[in-house]
Computed example of a mutant assay.
Amino acid sequence: MKTISLFILAYLLGSIQSGVWIGKFFYHKDIREFGSGNTGTTNTFRVLGKRAGTAVLFMDILKGTVATSLPIWFGLSIDPLWFGVAAILGHTFPIFGHFKGGKAVATSAGMLLAYSPTFFIYSASLFIIFLFLTSTVSLASMISAIIITISTIVLPIYAPFILAEQNWLLTSLAVAITLFIIIRHRDNIKRIKAGTESKVNFGLRKTKNR
């Protein structure tokens, strides 16, 4: 019963729509009606600005971290990654938002932070590097996700100081999350091919958002 209750709690934590709530309470805007219509960090930055976007980024990461930590805090003998999955599902299909949520990039990062801080730092560094090279959040997210997935297999062999042991559940989840991220970014991929995808004012190719 405790396990089921904590799974539900993890899902509810993921369902907290940080961008929507901050937009409504502090800016009197529903970010779903502006920009890409997405409820996540990138659209929050685009619609509400840096302060709100940064707050949503940290809150979405925190959702994944807290949810993944639940079985550790409550002494359950179950892989904590499953609770991270519950938070990711909550973020993507939130009960508080008619099951229409974000793309789960930040929440997935929060899951990694709870599971392995060193691997989280490695993964975050990859994202920052590719964001600097492309100035495009969507492209950086997809490329990073692919490399992170490969890294779950390679690092335990060649760099165990970053990721100590092989966990096939982590690898399986990384594959699933990567595929999901790519699918959810299909409209972004079309805009990237057409050269119309919005860029951030950061990195080698920075420009004003369209």
Rank of each mutant, 00 (worst) to 15 (best):
M1D: 03
L6N: 05
F7D: 01
I8M: 12
L9N: 06
L9D: 06
Y11K: 07
Y11F: 14
L12D: 00
L13N: 06
Q17L: 13
K24M: 05
F26T: 04
H28F: 04
H28A: 04
K29D: 06
I31G: 09
R32I: 12
R32K: 15
G35A: 09
G35C: 09
G37R: 08
G37V: 03
T42Y: 07
T42R: 03
N43P: 11
F45M: 13
V47C: 10
K50W: 14
G53Q: 10
G53F: 14
V56Q: 10
V56N: 04
V56D: 08
L57Q: 07
L62Y: 07
L62A: 15
K63L: 12
T65M: 15
V66F: 09
A67N: 09
S69N: 13
L70Q: 12
L70P: 14
L70M: 12
W73E: 06
F74I: 09
F74M: 09
G75P: 10
S77L: 12
L81R: 15
F83Q: 10
F83G: 13
G84M: 14
G84N: 07
I88T: 00
F93N: 05
I95Y: 02
G101A: 10
A104C: 15
V105M: 11
T107M: 11
T107Y: 14
S108L: 08
M111R: 02
L112E: 00
Y115W: 15
T118I: 05
T118A: 01
F119W: 03
F119C: 02
F120M: 01
F120D: 06
A124K: 03
S125F: 13
L126I: 05
L126Y: 07
I128Q: 00
L131P: 08
F132I: 13
L133S: 01
T134V: 01
S135D: 06
S135Y: 07
S135C: 10
T136W: 03
L139M: 14
A140T: 04
S141E: 13
I146S: 09
I146K: 12
I148Y: 07
T149S: 08
T149I: 03
I150S: 11
I150H: 00
V154K: 03
L155E: 00
A159G: 00
P160M: 01
F161V: 01
F161P: 01
E165H: 04
Q166D: 02
N167S: 14
N167R: 10
W168F: 15
W168N: 12
L169Y: 11
L170W: 04
T171L: 08
T171E: 04
S172P: 06
S172E: 03
L173C: 11
A174R: 05
A174C: 11
V175Q: 01
T178S: 15
I181G: 04
I183N: 13
I183M: 12
R186P: 06
R186A: 00
D187C: 04
K190C: 02
K190W: 06
R191K: 15
I192R: 04
I192V: 15
G195A: 07
G195E: 09
T196N: 07
T196D: 11
E197R: 06
S198I: 09
K199C: 08
N201Q: 08
N201H: 14
N201W: 15
F202D: 00
G203W: 13
R205A: 08
K206V: 07
K208T: 15
K208Q: 13
